[in-house]
Amino acid sequence: MKRVAALLFIAALAVLLLYVVSRMPPMGDPETPTATHVIPRYLEKAEEETHTVNVITGVILNYRGYDTMGEVTVIFCALAAVLAVLGRERRGVIHGFVDRSEVPSSTIVRTMVRFIVPFIILFSVYTILHGETSPGGGFQGGAIIGGSMIIFTTIFGLYESSRRIPLKVRAPLEGAAVMGFFLVGTLGLVGGGNFLTYAWPRVAQDLHPSLVVWLTVLVEVGIGLGGAMVLTSILFAMIREEEEIATVS
């Protein structure tokens, strides 16, 4: 009975939402409210106003940088939530990795991973630094580093990988994204504008474009580093938890 009622409710909700979608402005029509109000300025003026060739980066880091500052805080908050529930690996006491898999990883896999991980990280650096000219940026680059750490940890274990990125490196860098935003925001304020202004009216009427680009890249690097460290720390916290469960059972 309960199940039927739930199904009916979901079906009714789906019908309602589908109806609403059918009444929405048609997709891709140049006359829709979305295409005529805010977006034209972003598309036409972003390069000139934010000095970033990639319009998306211009919007998320400059026009709506404050939202992105909130989003990187969400990512940091996710890490804090994981650590609140699982706890961090304690300083100095890192449990040795016990390989419980049926098939031990072969020499070929180990050699390949050791060979390929540096290149993955190199690619992520490229992604981060090129965020303002081409698709990519801090979020993507950070996720790629995080992914490379997952690969490395799966093959070599927590002990090996946490020796390469120890807690004393991660702890200060986890919040790098928020710090980067705060730094650039305060610099804008000191320069005579509002918080998160990339142009400094008090210093110069027209700030040299390359300086604005460097500020953007600074924020990107912060996001990339912070994201990478957050993902790594979450990974390590979860591995430790699994081992604890394994020793109990």
């Binding site: 026009y63 940088g65 804008g188 509002n194 202004t197």
Partner: peptide, 11 residues
């Protein structure tokens, strides 16, 4: 106006 962008373009 965050970042000096007047709404609705900025936050």
């Amino acid at each position: 106006h965050m970042g000096g962008w007047e709404p609705p373009f900025g936050i």
